[in-house]
């Protein structure tokens, strides 16, 4: 019996191997069938529009009749007619939009990171009612951007806004401030609303990192009686730095493409218009599909470079970690 089984086994094994590879091939085939619908949709709604946008940036396309578009090379970016430079790269309006966007991104991401860390540290502490506080913190995240823009637009209203009233009662300001209209404060108004809306996201990411930290080094620090602020900067911050970096990059990429908040809160005014706002203004309001697409392409390139840099840095860090 034993020898019989032994004699049979190669056949059995061989059979199973054939079966296995057939199964693998069948699975591979079905994998591509399963992937196909998603890939087709993604090609239709992402790859194709992106390529067309880049192409349109090299044409003089107009919204009223895009079929008459002609290829004009780099003229939308930079061109010289009778000794006069023209194009996006010499357009002060474009550079104004670039400056606004960068100014906004740096301020708002910095403040969000600091506030987000504070909120995360509070949520990481053990206290009664913690889940209620966490729920409350999530509220701004759940509110649509347009709604938060309108809500804050009302709170920041120059005549009837609650913020002016409170600040005046506290004698911080003597006269009402036209937050969203004034050139000096309009961008700050945008930052205030954006910080309010996105700090929850930041706090959640940092909280997730905090909760993965080992508790033993904290206990050691506690036993040694080290000042908690010192513990934060010497122990916690270095440990959560990778997660913090990811969160900052995410938020920065998001801030660089801001459009809706500025469009609604400050009506795309010159003091606050972003790169996305500029591109859409050219495209829709001025019907200049070519220039709008060129601006959109520049924004895309900026974001792509930052993404690639971030991914490379992340990968290097990952490699370092595994090497250690």
């Amino acid at each position: 019996m034993v020898s019989f089984a032994a004699a049979l086994s190669p056949i059995f094994w061989g059979d199973q191997m054939v079966h296995q590879s057939e199964l693998t091939r069948a699975r591979l085939r079905s994998a591509w069938i399963f992937l196909a619908p998603m890939l087709i949709v993604l090609a239709l709604v992402a790859a194709w529009p992106l390529l067309r946008t880049i192409y349109l940036g090299f044409t003089d396309a107009n919204l009223s009749d895009p079929s008459k578009a002609q290829f004009i090379g780099f003229d939308n970016f930079l061109a010289k007619y009778e000794g006069e430079w023209s194009g996006l790269l010499v357009d002060p309006q474009w550079w104004n939009a670039v400056w606004n966007t960068v100014w906004f991104t740096v301020r708002s991401v910095t403040i969000e990171t600091v506030l987000g860390t504070i909120v995360a540290l509070v949520l990481n502490a053990n206290f009664p009612g913690r889940s209620i506080v966490r729920a409350a913190v999530l509220v701004p995240w759940a509110i649509p951007t347009i709604v938060s823009a309108k809500m804050w637009g009302w709170m920041l209203h120059d005549q009837f806004g609650v913020l002016n009233t409170i600040l005046q009662n506290l004698h911080i300001i003597s006269a009402p401030v036209a937050w969203t209209a004034n050139a000096d404060t309009a961008m700050w108004a945008v930052v205030i609303v954006d910080v309010w809306k996105t700090t929850p996201f930041m706090a959640l990411l940092i909280l997730a990192a905090l909760q993965m930290l080992p508790s033993d080094c904290y206990e050691a620090a506690k036993v040694d009686g080290i000042n908690p602020i010192k513990v934060f900067f010497k122990v916690t911050l270095p440990l959560i730095r990778p997660a913090l970096l990811v969160a900052v990059i995410f938020r920065a990429l998001d801030s660089l493409r801001i459009f809706d908040l500025i469009y609604v809160l400050t009506s795309n005014s010159r003091d606050t218009i972003s790169m996305s706002g500029y591109a859409r203004q050219q495209l829709v309001d001025f019907q200049e599909v070519g220039i709008g697409s060129a601006a959109a392409t520049l924004l895309f390139i900026v974001i792509a470079i930052i993404t690639v840099l971030a991914l490379t840095v992340g990968k290097v860090r990952l490699a370092e970690d595994t090497a250690r």
Partner: peptide, 13 residues
């Protein structure tokens, strides 16, 4: 990671 505006004119078309 695409900024929405980067596909806007292509999507419009």
């Amino acid at each position: 990671m695409f900024p929405q505006v980067a596909v806007l004119s292509g999507m419009f078309e």
